[in-house]
Simulated assay, not measured.
Amino acid sequence: MKHDLNFDDQRTITGTVKWFDPGKGFGFVVADAGGPDILLHANVLRNFGQNSVTDGARIDIAVQSTERGKQAVQILSIAPPEESSSQPLSDVDEIDDDILAAAPLEAARVKWFDKVKGFGFANVFGRREDVFVHIEVLRRSGLADLQPGEALAIRVVDGKRGRMATEVSAWETAVSE
């Protein structure tokens, strides 16, 4: 078996996610310093504890050179996109920012999520009611999609139409903070 990774050439890069497609299992990162796009494979993302990452997210990665170009071998951090061109969420517009920030992170599992519809639901451990998860909350949290059964840490508030997530984190990321 031939390994084409050059371990002497590993370095840390800061950049922006150009795009990532969970269905294809890969995407690309553009380094702040320029140069060719860097391959981001789904396995590297899963090792970080996420199944997706939103386009435009800021990312710190360890990169190695291969015969086919540069590829990420480890994710060090992911931050949501710096600018959001999206609409505000009317359900939480009237809730004080301090209340939103004070909501505790709660363990949850994804019940279902439909990226095309732009929403889904999660269940908080120990509670019966569903928690609404809007795709804009995912984008603001640096995620692009959720899979049924995926473990999460979420901040939940009572919105105009019931309980809703205001922040979503991959479980592994939340427990390390």
Rank of each mutant, 00 (worst) to 15 (best):
A122L: 08
M1T: 14
I135G: 09
A57R: 01
G149Q: 01
T173G: 14
R163P: 04
G159I: 07
K115A: 15
E106Y: 06
E172P: 10
V44E: 00
G15V: 01
G126K: 10
H3M: 11
D32E: 14
P81C: 03
I13G: 02
I13W: 01
Q147G: 11
G27L: 00
E94Q: 05
E83K: 15
P81K: 05
P36Y: 02
I99T: 15
S65I: 14
R58F: 13
L138T: 06
G34F: 00
P22E: 05
F20N: 11
L100P: 11
F48A: 06
P104I: 00
A31L: 07
V124Q: 11
R140E: 13
D96K: 10
L146W: 00
G149E: 03
S77T: 08
R11G: 02
L76V: 13
F125C: 14
N51W: 11
N43E: 06
V17S: 00
D9W: 08
G162D: 07
F121I: 10
A108Q: 01
F20S: 07
K111F: 11
D4V: 10
N123S: 07
S84Y: 11
Q64K: 05
F26W: 04
D114C: 04
F121Q: 10
L76Y: 12
N123G: 12
S86H: 15
G49N: 04
T14S: 12
E172M: 14
V110M: 01
L105D: 04
N47S: 08
V175K: 15
D55M: 13
T54F: 09
D91F: 03
